[in-house]
């Protein structure tokens, strides 16, 4: 496990040499399994060429806007776990990432990045929103509804501000999408996923808006959270390169109650490691065909990291065991 993270960080370091401004929040000195939620009254977080606003109400001990976190709990549902990303870490296994709680929220570009194009950023669900959509809670439905056929979605719209005005250019990113008639295609994002924003052109700031099909007369029921990392606010003098992870395999079904199928297109000999959230190796299997089944029945319910590697590369995915 440590070897994999080390490799990821090494790849990341090489990339950073070429990218002048990669906002990864690692400069924030946060104790392990902790967060900054603005209770110091700072009003926000400045990181590289972006400013993330924060509003903290000291009377109600309540925050909104952005927080910086490194909590890694991917199993506890509910409000008490509002600062965690479902990936259990920042992008590429890094420590810190940003989490936002707001129905509408902004990210301001500053410094040399102001008014310039943004290549994109990595986005994933918070554990709170992910488990709420996966299992439902007292206030929110599990996506798909009682039959699994409800065409639910949890949509993040990212719009551009230019010259202080909200433009019509925007990018949609589905944090969960159950609209496909084939339910096996339904998904809830549980990995850091690259969102390309180059189509927005030059921007001063980005406006983030969440909408959900689970909405009532008092507003959206789905927890209004998502997480962000590795924002590439392109500097006028630099180009920004996307970090692509190697996709060695696919897992389905996910979540699962017993078996998972692991498919890999190249049919190479692969090693498959399954770790629990403590980083303990709980299962290993040599994959010799391009579609192999692994029995998870003996494992307790929870989230597991499935890592597949060949001689030269590896990739990881989270799987939820019900």
């Amino acid at each position: 496990m440590k070897l994999h993270f080390t490799l990821l960080i090494a790849i990341l370091s090489i990339t950073m040499l070429r990218a002048q401004t990669v906002v990864d929040f690692e400069e924030f000195d946060i104790p392990s399994e902790s967060f900054l939620n603005g209770d110091d009254g700072s009003g926000g977080f400045s990181s590289g060429d972006v400013f993330l606003n924060n509003s903290y109400n000291s009377e109600f001990l309540s925050w909104s806007g952005w927080a910086i976190s490194n909590t890694s709990d991917v199993t506890t549902p509910g409000f008490t776990n509002q600062y965690s990303a479902i990936t259990g870490s920042g992008y590429g296994g890094s420590g810190n990432y940003a989490v936002t709680f707001a129905f509408d929220n902004n990210m301001v570009l500053q410094g040399d990045a102001a008014g310039q194009p943004v290549s994109g950023m990595y986005i994933t669900n918070s554990t709170y929103a992910y488990l709420s959509m996966l299992d439902g809670d007292a206030f929110s439905k599990k996506f798909g509804g009682v039959t699994g056929d409800d065409p639910d979605f949890f949509l993040l719209n990212i719009a551009a501000f230019r010259d202080g005005n909200l433009t019509t250019e925007s990018v949609d990113f589905y944090l969960a999408d159950f609209r496909n008639e084939d339910n096996s295609q339904d998904y809830i994002v549980n990995e850091w996923t690259w969102v390309d924003l180059t189509s927005l052109g030059n921007v001063d700031s980005l406006a983030f808006t969440l909408t959900s099909t689970d909405v009532g007369q008092f507003g959206m029921n789905t927890p209004a959270y998502f997480c962000v990392d590795h924002i590439f606010a392109e500097n006028p003098d630099t180009d920004v390169t996307d970090i692509n992870t190697t996709e060695l395999f696919e897992i389905y079904p996910n979540p699962t109650s017993d078996f998972i199928q692991i498919s890999n297109a190249n049919n190479k000999d692969l090693n498959c490691y399954i770790y629990d959230t403590n980083g303990t190796l709980v299962l290993y299997k040599r994959l010799q065909t391009n579609n192999e089944s692994i029995n998870l029945k003996q494992l307790p319910s929870g989230v597991y990291l499935v890592t597949v590697e060949n001689e030269h590369e590896y990739s990881s995915k989270l799987v939820m065991k019900k």
Partner: peptide, 13 residues
């Protein structure tokens, strides 16, 4: 005990 809703997989409240 507080049961789950019909669109909630489980409750332990």
């Amino acid at each position: 005990q507080i049961p789950p809703t019909n669109v909630q997989n489980r409750s332990e409240a």
